[in-house]
């Protein structure tokens, strides 16, 4: 993506990269905590605003940065919001898996797509892995997978929303250069 090159060219390496990781992580964590207060039609489902920071790291930075943001977000948000063990055991694999797939997707198809479809993909993967982890760790009844289609559909839609938001922020950052 040409704008990525532009950004990284203008920024001096290391410090600015580290600073951006910090900014994106902070963004993810704040969103991650804030979205606990935003209800959705399906219980337990979140908008996935925290994913915005991860997506920005993917589109503007690199592989390592994206995983750093993802990992920190997945640890720190539950630390603040409580119920740490349950949330991390379900959320961390989900966040890492969705980050990995979004990265792969962006590396492979980045030229043809924007973070909108990437967000949708991330949302879908995230909820699926969450169900999987909840299924093997806590609920242990295949009955929960009966709900997966509904959650997956809403989660994908949320992913489009967050992906679009990430796209806007990306554009804004580019213009402000």
């Amino acid at each position: 993506m040409s704008d990525v090159k532009m950004m990284t060219k203008d920024l001096t390496p290391y410090q600015d990269r580290t600073a951006l990781i910090g900014v994106f992580t902070a963004l993810s964590i704040v969103f991650g905590i804030a979205e606990n207060f935003i209800g959705l039609p399906l219980p337990g489902l979140r908008l996935g605003l925290a994913n915005i920071g991860i997506m920005l790291a993917i589109t503007m930075l690199d592989f390592k940065a994206a995983f750093a943001v993802a990992f920190l977000k997945a640890i720190i948000v539950p630390l603040v919001t409580g119920n740490f063990i349950v949330k991390v055991s379900i959320g961390l694999p989900a966040t890492l898996a969705s980050t990995f797939l979004m990265l792969t997707y962006f590396k492979l198809c980045g030229r043809f797509i924007t973070s909108v479809s990437m967000g949708a993909l991330g949302g879908l993967v995230h909820i699926t892995v969450q169900f999987f982890m909840a299924g093997i760790l806590y609920i242990q009844s295949p009955a929960i997978y009966g709900l997966l289609p509904y959650f997956a559909a809403v989660s994908t839609a949320c992913g489009i929303f967050t992906g679009y938001t990430a796209l806007m922020i990306n554009g804004y950052l580019k213009r402000s250069q």
């Binding site: 704008d3 797509i113 924007t114 479809s117 949708a120 679009y164 796209l167």
Partner: peptide, 11 residues
């Protein structure tokens, strides 16, 4: 920055 056609297809 605009949504691309491929986005729609993937979605």
């Amino acid at each position: 920055m605009k949504i691309k056609a491929a986005d729609i297809v993937v979605i």
